[in-house]
């Protein structure tokens, strides 16, 4: 969404630590791209949307972030935010393997917010608006393709 759309988003109830873990993770899911001139999911506007959206599922999101952080502490003796890039990469692979539903939840929230950002939509040649009320145009297509079927005899079974 645009900056204007998220103005006034209330502060979330996530702790600073949870917020930091989530920000690092969403950046790992969708990083910025120079090739396509795209922001990453940790971009300030997009991340604010992600946080606000995650708030609606606060319990499961906190549980997912906690699972990720606990995994870091078990395997690396350090919280997730303290790991270096290589350590995080390896840990996230393990997180997705051990906690697929938690990983899916966080990824789903991330893409839900990422793909409604103005900059991302424009880069995909999408209009930055909801479907309604303007709608879209769909080509009629080539109806002459139906001609071979029109010539086919009826083939349904008759009732006894």
């Amino acid at each position: 969404m645009s900056d204007q759309d998220i103005t006034g988003v209330a502060a979330t109830s996530f702790t600073d630590e949870e917020t930091q873990i989530l920000k690092i993770l969403v950046d790992m899911i969708i990083p910025a791209s120079d090739e396509y001139s795209l922001p990453g999911a940790a971009d300030a506007v997009i991340f604010a949307d992600i946080l606000a959206t995650a708030e609606a599922r606060h319990g499961p999101v906190c549980a997912a972030l906690s699972a990720l952080d606990e995994l870091a502490r078990e395997s690396q003796d350090n919280g997730f935010t303290a790991l270096d890039l290589d350590q995080r990469d390896g840990l996230v692979v393990e997180f997705r393997r051990l906690h697929p539903a938690a990983a899916d939840l966080l990824a789903t929230i991330t893409v839900q917010c990422y793909y409604r950002d103005d900059r991302v939509m424009r880069a995909l040649d999408m209009e930055t608006r909801p479907p309604f009320p303007a709608g879209f145009t769909v080509d009629q297509g080539d109806w002459s393709l139906l001609n071979p079927v029109r010539g086919r005899p009826e083939f349904y079974r008759k009732a006894p």
Partner: peptide, 28 residues
Amino acid sequence: PAYPGDNAKRMPPLPLGKTGEALAKGFN
């Protein structure tokens, strides 16, 4: 041809669009 004829009044069909056209070619 998959159905008996009926006298139902129908509005014009939804557009084939690019997808319908692609799949129609496959069926044909």
